[in-house]
Design a protein around this nucleic acid. Structure first.
Length: 481
RNA sequence: GCGCCUCUAGCUCAACGGCAGAGCAACGGACUCUUAAUCCGCAGGUUCUGGGUUCGAAUCCCAGGGGGCGCACCA
């Protein structure tokens, strides 16, 4: 009987439901009402039944939509099909109409006159008190996580608002949004191992992009003076609490600007997003205060490394001295590393993890920055900075390299490294060089990890919390948990 | 890839070498203002998988699988 009944109930579910209010709005408007009051306002709300308390001829249910939850108050004397309502399962979706009231105990409620079943939850969702704690299940079946636990909906909505804020801040500054190819015959714009796929009709291998950079700069060559893309990039690398193989980047490029302009833009974007999303620019992250209010501290890599190792070091000191400093601090130096690479390693190993408040780390070695323009006054350096927040790189930006000859040299040096076995090195990108030979004006460029921005604004320690369906090993059995 | 930790009912967890259990959910019932409602009843298991040790294994050992954290790589 149960299954036949359920079958006909499925068929009787309406195709739409005219809800008049978000639950959150009702709570906002009437949340302070005294006990035992009516409002005269009749509303229709819809959502999922979170809890159900049967009391004989009267039933209390907690109904949750994505804006919040409110109690439904139903009674045999005034609610249609009362007995069926009392038999609903936790997790069922219903739409209910009635007056907004408070009960004797003062709980804000919708006193249900009429209601409709909108979906049956035939699989249980988890413990009504503990929710679902199995982290594997939460990530493989986010729909369950969203319903059973409090945090994920807030995280999802916050991320959405953060992306909207970034997009709108850029549009306010005259940037136009574009979409460039994900499938590329040759990946470029970053040093990373790509994913490979195959196009049947063209009988060609393609790579999933590892960065957005080169196509966007080609658009600048074409005259698109302020351009950005918010898009997915893919890197075939290990997973970690801070790395998902597919992740979302913002890249934007501004003609006639340099990296100092990009530093200012970085502050405006991050602080602006925080302001719009959480309402302030001082946030709490993992129990510590983080002050995103501009201006951020600016320091050069040389200064920061020197400070950390307790002696003045710079590229001019040469590979030998840097190598000695590195080894004094327990850092293994590979033979292929030049002075610049050693400096970068010193920075990444000893300085970056200890930076907490936002810092703009300026002026990277040329050796580790093949797409950035040589520094206007410092030998061996490029005009590049990374913005580090909470010990992690959030933004990477340059004065873009515009000289096709230097770009070709840099590509060729990368190609040599690739030939000698570095799977992450770049290849020579002739299409990009072709574009540069048509003239890239002075341009500032910036890349930001959107997932990491979302982590900061949602106080998430694991990137998988801000990605609804993170990359996981395929489950052998889809129902296994 | 390597190291450490973890996996028991739908969910949250006990049992830690001696009969696999509780709460919640589900199912049946009582109850007209509840707040994790309460009460009565009933059912629920390949203890992740496969081997081994043992009179006896959820428990100890080995191998495999899933997941987490750390390291490495990166954003």
């Amino acid at each position: 009987m149960a299954s036949d009944d359920a079958g006909s109930e499925q068929e009787s579910i309406p195709y739409k439901f005219g809800k008049t209010h978000e639950i959150g709005d009702i709570r906002e408007q009437y949340g302070t009402l005294e006990p035992g009051r009516g409002t005269g306002e009749v509303v229709s709300v819809a959502g999922r039944i979170l809890r159900l308390r049967r009391q004989g001829k009267v039933v209390f249910a907690e109904l949750r939509d994505w804006s919040g939850s409110v109690q439904l108050f139903a009674g045999a004397d005034f609610t249609e099909r009362f007995d069926r309502l009392a038999r609903c399962s936790l997790g069922d979706w219903i739409g209910a109409s009635g007056e907004v009231v408070t009960t004797r105990r003062g709980e804000l409620s919708v006193r249900v006159d009429t209601w409709e079943l909108l979906a049956l939850a035939t699989l249980g969702f988890g413990d009504k008190w503990h929710g679902v704690a199995d982290i594997d299940k939460r990530w493989r079946h986010r729909e369950v996580d969203l319903w059973a636990n409090e945090g994920p909906m807030t995280t999802l909505l916050t991320r959405s608002r953060a992306v909207r804020a970034v997009r709108s801040l850029l549009e306010d500054r005259g940037f136009v949004e574009v979409e460039t190819p994900v499938l590329q015959p040759q990946p470029g714009g970053a040093m990373a191992r790509p994913f490979v796929t195959h196009h049947n009709a063209l009988d060609s291998d393609f790579y999933l992009r590892i960065a957005l950079e080169l196509h966007l700069k080609r658009l600048v060559v074409g005259g698109v003076e302020r351009v950005f893309e918010l898009g997915r990039a893919f890197r075939n690398e290990g997973l970690s609490p801070r790395h998902n193989p597919e992740f979302t980047m913002l890249e934007c490029y501004q003609a006639y600007a340099d990296y100092n302009d990009m530093a200012e833009l970085t502050e405006q974007l991050v602080a602006g997003a925080a302001q719009r999303v959480v309402g302030r620019t001082v946030v709490t992250y993992q129990g510590r205060e983080l002050d995103l209010t501009p201006p951020w501290r600016r320091a050069t890599m040389t200064e920061l490394v020197s400070e950390k190792v307790g002696q003045q070091v710079d590229l001019a000191a040469g590979r030998q001295q840097l190598s000695r400093v590195a080894e004094q601090h327990g850092l293994e130096v590979l033979p292929a590393w030049g002075a610049g690479k050693i400096m970068n390693e010193l920075y990444e190993s000893f300085v970056e993890p200890d930076l907490w408040q936002p810092v703009m780390v300026f002026d990277y070695p040329r050796e580790v920055s093949p797409l950035a323009r040589p520094h206007r006054s410092e030998d061996g350096l490029v005009e590049r900075f990374e913005a580090v927040v909470a010990g992690r790189e959030l933004v990477n930006a340059f004065s873009e390299l515009t000289d096709p000859d230097i770009q070709r040299e840099n590509f060729e040096r990368q190609a040599e490294a690739k030939a000698s076995g570095d799977p992450e090195a770049m290849a020579v990108d002739e299409d990009y060089l072709f574009a540069l030979m048509h003239g890239l004006p002075p341009t500032g460029g910036l890349g930001m990890g959107i997932d990491r921005l979302a982590m900061l604004l949602t106080d998430s320690s694991n990137i998988r919390e801000v990605i609804p369906f993170p990359t996981l090993r395929p489950a052998p059995d889809p129902t296994a948990g």
